[in-house]
Design a protein around this nucleic acid. Structure first.
Lengths: 218, 218
DNA sequence: TGTACATCAGTGAACGCGCGTTCACTGATGTAC
DNA sequence: TGTACATCAGTGAACGCGCGTTCACTGATGTAC
């Protein structure tokens, strides 16, 4: 109905505002202004500013997740290393296109806002896609001495993948790779790679190829 | 003189406010209130809010840099891998003690604020300490085919270290390790490691030991 | 088909709060003769 | 030693702006008989 359209319009306006002015500047009043409404009218459709933020957060995680899943599907005939690179590059490209949304998802927490549990599920789509790729190729590492310290450490994540699908060493490396992808994109986006390399995209490619090798996706 | 003491007090109050309420909530009025001053009085000592932010930013980078440099000095008799671990852990520990400052340094940029060039120099102390460690041990990697793509890519950073001190492959890996350290700390601090591992400190240790090995500091 | 009523989108004013920055000023301190 | 003056820390009011949220309301639309 028209009601749903209106909610969608509010989300879109919020999204626009987020993209141009950042999460901290996202306000219900601004959204209302964008839509030509009086500020109180928005409360017919959205219970609070925090709720709007949550919806946008979920939207962001879902979009990024969907993007990466699509790329995983599209690149499935390539070599494992190229597949990894494709996923990583899809992440980076999405982030460059939506820097403020990226900052909302992976940057500093918004002060006074705690993300509710509804956001957890969409947030797992990206790491799930990454680990699925690793599982699909079941790389065999020269696991010299499997560190006994890993065993208890990785219990939570091990419970989320098929039993025996990956060695502890590989799970560990996959976790490292996951946070490396996110960390590297943030590092570039937040301006910390300035003056270090000549070409961000090429650096990222080199980095991710090495990461793929480290994961045994050679 | 008393003037300098006052400036120091203002910085300290700003620091306190940053630590408890975050960078976005840092305001000159709040600082003035903390010091029992009227808001306009602060302008005797600090030209603007952005200037205060810049000073805090520099203070943060310097503190973190100093901490890591001190640890580098103190751990210089250990094995290379243990030295790396010490630096990484010092970074993480500092971040856990100053989460809001960390967020200011390495999280999302503050909206409407662009860090001036004065912050660049203090910001390089941490990466400088890391790369100094790598140089000190001049690891030899089994550099199979030195990628010709790296050569032009790494020019800016290569110009900042002694000529010939490190192979391109090692410079590349050092860059990766640098952003991995920052990224991993942020990842944990911003809540993305929830539900993945049982013990953050142990995970970090395992991760950094692998990173040291990857740098040939094994 | 026509009337009575309920629903509900949107209004406008208000509450109480925050911010950065400017400006004319008071009044104490310290310096120069 | 005592007076005249300059310096400058701190005041208080103001400008103009933003925000989230509540509440009594208008008025159009749609439904039920």
């Amino acid at each position: 109905v028209a009601r749903e359209q209106m909610v969608a319009d509010i989300l879109a306006a919020g999204r626009r505002h987020l993209a141009t002015h950042g999460a901290a500047a996202l306000s219900l009043r601004a959204v209302a202004r964008d839509l030509g409404l009086v500020s109180s009218a928005v409360y017919r459709y959205v219970p609070s500013r925090d709720d709007l933020l949550t919806r946008l957060l979920i939207q962001g995680y879902d979009e990024l997740g969907q993007t990466v899943e699509d790329v995983a599907q599209a690149s499935r005939r390539r070599t494992p290393a190229r597949q990894w690179l494709a996923l990583a590059q899809a992440t980076r490209t999405w982030a460059l296109g939506e820097p403020q949304m990226w900052a909302l998802l992976y940057g500093s927490p918004v002060p006074g806002y705690a993300a509710p549990t509804d956001t957890i599920d969409p947030a797992t789509r990206l790491p799930r896609a990454l680990i699925t790729l690793v599982i699909a190729h079941r790389p065999t590492l020269d696991d010299q001495a499997p560190s006994p310290k890993l065993q208890p450490l990785l219990t939570p994540i091990r419970d989320q993948i098929p039993p025996g699908a990956l060695s502890d060493e590989l799970i560990m490396r996959a976790l490292m790779a996951w946070s490396q992808v996110i960390g590297s994109v943030s590092f570039e986006l937040f301006g910390h790679r300035k003056g270090a390399v000549t070409d961000y995209a090429q650096y990222f490619e080199q980095e991710q190829l090495r990461l793929a090798a480290y994961l045994g996706l050679g």
